[in-house]
């Protein structure tokens, strides 16, 4: 009983398909619970029958009884149950794929982080590449509660899969094809998402946070993300950032740093985590990631900057922390 209770404790978390916060996750959870109860009832019936035939009334049963058991228990019952489940499951599918009525967000699975662009224009049909433009961000997706948001999923090189268990089922991000996932979060909150398709060394460290907020808060957030960085560029941190070539890969809009290889850092410090939800956002963790990149996240494409002086790394981390 203690183990069962301990197990149920895991059902409520920001990353549980059993604690739904979206219409699709609710449907999946309902399906799961119904099937679980059904499986338990069938298990009890089979075990009960075994006990009846071997303990309560142990005797040699005739061929007719055996044949009846096979026909009713092995043919008719499974066909009826499976047909009911199939019809029920099929009629659940169209509403899950209902048209979006909210914003469109492009999400690109990179090695090993999530490139996000708010407010893009999707093309009809199956596109080969994600649309250009939009408001860039990374590793944190904000969604308006109660609206059906369309996520356009793509990848430049290897296959990833976006899965936010509390909100919806997973969908692959495939190179050369844009997949569409329409999600409808219902409860504001912060949820965890993961890459659900093995994509390389840092696959296990390729997570993200999904923040569900009321629609007006979402609009305000996207507007803030679209604004250039309001940050000091005359200090040692910024100089170190530029002198060591960080701008070749990272953009900080409004400062001259315009790299597009790695995550956009314009509002880095407004995110809850760094390194694709590997570490909580803090000055110390930023310094650790810069100095010991591959220890924090093995296989990541960013080189480790452990050769820099500790003060220089601290200055860069301090400056990055001001990118609100």
């Amino acid at each position: 009983m203690i183990f069962v209770c301990a197990g149920f404790a895991g059902c409520t978390s920001p990353q549980s398909a059993l604690d739904p916060a979206g219409t699709e996750a609710e449907t999946v959870a309902t399906l799961f619970w119904v099937m679980l109860v059904g499986a338990i009832l069938i298990w009890l019936a089979v075990i009960g029958l075994s006990v009846f035939a071997t303990r309560i009334r142990p005797k040699a049963y005739g061929e007719t009884a055996g044949l009846r058991l096979i026909v009713w228990g092995g043919c008719v019952f499974p066909v009826v149950v499976l047909t009911a489940l199939l019809v029920w499951g099929l009629q659940m599918m169209p509403p899950m794929r209902a048209e979006a009525n909210g914003p469109t967000i492009a999400v690109s699975g990179e090695r090993f982080w999530w490139r996000v662009a708010y407010g893009v224009e999707g093309e009809p049909g199956v596109s080969k590449t994600l649309p250009e433009g939009g408001t860039p961000s990374a590793n944190e997706i904000w969604l308006p509660a109660g609206q059906r948001t369309e996520l356009l999923l793509g990848s430049p090189d290897v296959i990833h899969s976006l899965w936010v268990p509390s909100i919806a089922g997973k969908m692959d991000a495939i190179p050369g094809r844009v997949n569409r996932l329409v999600v409808e979060p219902t409860k504001p909150g912060v949820y965890n998402g993961v890459c659900a398709e093995f994509c390389g060394d840092a696959h296990a460290q390729m997570a993200l946070r999904v923040v569900v907020v009321p629609a007006d808060e979402y609009e305000a957030y996207v507007a803030r993300q679209g604004a250039p960085a309001s940050v000091e560029t005359g200090n040692a941190g910024f100089r170190a950032f530029m002198q060591n070539g960080c701008d070749a890969c990272h953009a900080v809009r409004g400062t001259g740093a315009a790299g597009e290889v790695g995550p956009d850092l314009t509002h880095l410090a407004s995110r809850r985590t760094i390194a694709a939800a590997t570490l909580p956002m803090s000055r110390d963790n930023l310094a650790e990631f810069i100095g010991f990149t591959h220890r924090v996240k093995p296989g990541v494409q960013m080189p480790s900057y452990g050769m820099l002086a500790e003060e220089e790394i601290a200055a860069i981390a301090g400056w990055l922390e001001t990118l609100q």
């Binding site: 499976l82 047909t83 199939l86 019809v87 099929l90 599918m93």
Partner: peptide
Amino acid sequence: FIAVIYTALPVALMADCR
């Protein structure tokens, strides 16, 4: 017979390409 019904059920219940 049952398999053919199961194969046809999706188009019986879904009116479009979703």
